[in-house]
Amino acid sequence: MLGSQSSLVMYDEEYQRIMVLIQKLLRESNAKVIFLVDKNGQLIAATGETEHLDTTSLASLTAGNIAATGGLAKLIGEKEFSILFHEGEKDNIHISIIGGRVILVIIFDERSSLGLVRLRVKKASEELGGVFEDLVQKTVIHSEKVGSDSPFAEITDDDIDNLFN
């Protein structure tokens, strides 16, 4: 497990694997949009009709939503609610948790159905879970050698000041 203070890190290789998996899920579930969000509200990856979507806001609100329902779950003695479903007039949102830490969000309309989405999510979750486990391993190794080859080891005061100009 990641320590609570360590960073989540994404590498090219895992990112590519994740994109392949969610693109496949998008096709197989006939969904409109799929995205993955860290429990802290950071967008990890997105695919589908994302052009007109404010994915940053969606990510933050999804994480807030999961956090709030997670709080509710604890109050009644559940660990968490691993699936949330919001039904709209046209579009629906299916939210599930992968490996306890990453949130998978699927937006779909009448071209798909809750049953189909559920079915496809189940299989994809296992595969995605595997990638995130690899990522955690890699991050642990990375954080052990950080300082030597981290691109941030060399940050100077000037770099930081420049950000605000």
Binding site: S7, Y11, Y15, N40, Q42
Partner: peptide, 15 residues
């Protein structure tokens, strides 16, 4: 916890 994304070359921090 910050999120360092080498794939998109981004760092995200939460304040």
């Amino acid at each position: 916890m910050s999120f360092i994304n080498y794939a998109s070359r981004e760092i995200n921090c939460k304040i």
